[in-house]
Amino acid sequence: LRLEVKLGQGCFGEVWMGTWNGTTRVAIKTLKPGTMSPEAFLQEAQVMKKLRHEKLVQLYAVVSEEPIYIVTEYMSKGSLLDFLKGETGKYLRLPQLVDMAAQIASGMAYVERMNYVHRDLRAANILVGENLVCKVADFGLARLIEDNEYTARQGAKFPIKWTAPEAALYGRFTIKSDVWSFGILLTELTTKGRVPYPGMVNREVLDQVERGYRMPCPPECPESLHDLMCQCWRKEPEERPTFEYLQAFL
């Protein structure tokens, strides 16, 4: 395994491009020591290896001592969030954005069929390849993070704006909380990567959403798509659509 080009840095580690087995181009995620327990990670990795779908980033291998390494397929255009905010983002029109959403829903419909939960679905965790191919990455890892700023769910590192209220408040993460996050991801797509709930801080978002506030229809977004977002944001988790439905609708 060779680490060649550093692609990015996040709160919990770095991402590199490299070569595996001398020939395969891969992405390598390294986790800061202390982010998660190697034992817990190894268990999760076994499950992650079983998830194989064309719209999920394929896991190739893991190094399960500290520092933990995760070796996955390489996606040339990086994260969907950076892609939307970058040069190419300007030229993306609604049909392409909807197609990308459908690809993500397709990957998540598979996660749904496998009775698995992602827990951290957002544009930053979707990767883009050639020809606007989108794949879901980092599934299941969020559960293992041991950082206090994260586990408190009120901490600075927790993605509260993407998280369903029952998950943020009571830790009830299910495929239905993933559906909520998918609704937020749809706003990221239609606004080219704007942060959700602009002008609001995490605490406010939690309070307002509890009181029934939902983001309005983004500019140039059809009402039918906003309606779909609002279905994803129904207060009762069981009233939210399935990913199978979302995939078919898109």
Rank of each mutant, 00 (worst) to 15 (best):
L94D: 05
Y60I: 15
T151G: 03
R93W: 10
T151K: 05
F173Q: 00
A45L: 02
G86Q: 09
E236T: 12
L141Y: 04
V5G: 15
R119P: 02
T174Y: 15
P219G: 05
D99G: 14
V47G: 02
E14L: 15
F158T: 02
A164I: 00
R2Y: 06
P198A: 10
K135G: 03
V195H: 14
G212D: 08
V26N: 06
T23V: 14
V117M: 05
I104A: 06
P33M: 08
A45I: 03
A27V: 03
E239Y: 14
M108S: 14
S79I: 02
M108Y: 06
P218L: 08
F41H: 00
E66V: 14
V111Y: 00
K50I: 13
Y170G: 06
I160T: 04
G8V: 00
A168K: 04
M100T: 09
N115F: 11
G140R: 01
L185M: 09
F182R: 00
V26A: 09
K29Q: 02
A152C: 07
M17D: 14
N125H: 00
G155E: 05
L80T: 11
V133M: 13
A61R: 15
R211Y: 14
L246W: 05
P237Q: 14
Q103F: 06
K50D: 13
Q103P: 03
N202M: 06
Y74R: 15
M108R: 01
L56M: 10
A105V: 10
E39G: 10
T174P: 05
A124K: 03
A101T: 06
G34L: 10
P95V: 07
A102V: 09
C11V: 02
P218A: 08
S37Y: 05
M114S: 05
G18C: 09
Q46R: 06
G78S: 10
E244G: 12
I160Y: 11
V133P: 05
K77A: 11
D82K: 06
Y69L: 15
N202I: 07
V128P: 02
R119G: 00
N202L: 05
M215T: 06
E66M: 15
P198F: 08
P165V: 10
K6G: 15
T163F: 01
W180G: 00
I70R: 01
D207Y: 10
P67M: 03
G199A: 13
P95Y: 08
T23E: 12
R234T: 10
L92P: 07
A105Q: 01
Y69E: 08
L42W: 10
F243I: 15
A152L: 04
V15I: 04
T24W: 15
D99R: 15
Q231K: 12
V179I: 14
A152P: 05
T174R: 14
R2W: 14
T163R: 01
F249I: 10
Y245D: 07
R211E: 08
L81R: 14
R122F: 03
W20C: 15
V133H: 14
F158Q: 02
E236C: 13
Y150P: 02
L132E: 11
K77F: 09
F139S: 01
